[in-house]
């Protein structure tokens, strides 16, 4: 693995923790490298990634390294199989998770979230972590949306680069914080966006 790829993992991993969207040992990242995948080690700390914490293995075939890989590796593999993603970020942002417990889709009300996301579907499975169900369900949605929320667990975001997927994750959490703040104010929201009523159809 090139030093440039490792540095991407380090920077994005640290930023995810600093932003408060993963716990000390939560979340996982991966990039696709042709017919190989580089993914964070199971139990690694995203804020403190070392070379040994980024595991390279086959995209479709296992090798010995798979014993070290993130528990979500099969979900990542399934997403790469079904989409043109080159990078995946999975995080546990608290405001977005809280909101996912109450709705079937998250439609941001702030400007940045509206521009970049329009709408984020919320999906659910009985087994949420690294399960076959998740591996079957999420890729279907990620063919149409670049970020999808797994209820009670967290979003999976895809991009051409880790930074892109991280941006979507960050924007979603910020939008959910704003929605929570606005909800708490208990006032009627004054709409400023033309056509926003159609965002639910995005």
């Amino acid at each position: 693995m090139s030093s440039a790829v490792l540095e991407q993992f380090r920077r994005i991993g640290r930023d995810l923790f600093v932003a408060g969207v993963v716990s000390s040992h939560g979340g996982n990242l991966s990039v696709r490298m042709g017919d190989r995948i580089a993914i964070t080690r199971r139990g690694s700390m995203l804020a403190r990634l070392e070379e040994r914490d980024v595991i390279e293995t086959g995209l479709s075939e296992n090798d010995a390294n798979v014993v070290l890989a993130s528990t979500e590796i099969n979900v990542h593999r399934a997403i790469y199989e079904a989409t043109a993603a080159q990078a995946i970020v999975h995080a546990h942002p608290p405001y977005a998770i809280a909101r996912s417990l109450m709705c079937d889709e998250i439609v941001p009300i702030d400007s940045e979230g509206s521009y970049l996301l329009h709408k984020v579907p919320v999906v659910h499975t009985e087994l949420t972590a690294g399960s076959k169900q998740v591996a079957e369900l999420l890729p279907k949605w990620l063919k149409e949306y670049d970020i999808v929320m797994l209820r009670g667990h967290g979003p999976f975001a895809i991009g051409h680069l880790l930074e892109e997927a991280y941006q979507l994750t960050s924007v979603l959490e910020m939008s959910c914080r704003i929605m929570t703040l606005a909800d708490g104010m208990g006032e009627q929201i004054r709409e400023y966006r033309k056509g926003s009523e159609r965002y639910e159809t995005w």
């Binding site: 090139s2 440039a4 790829v5 080159q86």
Partner: peptide, 9 residues
């Protein structure tokens, strides 16, 4: 290295 996928997309 590491940019082939980006180029292909």
């Amino acid at each position: 290295l590491g940019k082939a996928g980006l180029l292909i997309n």
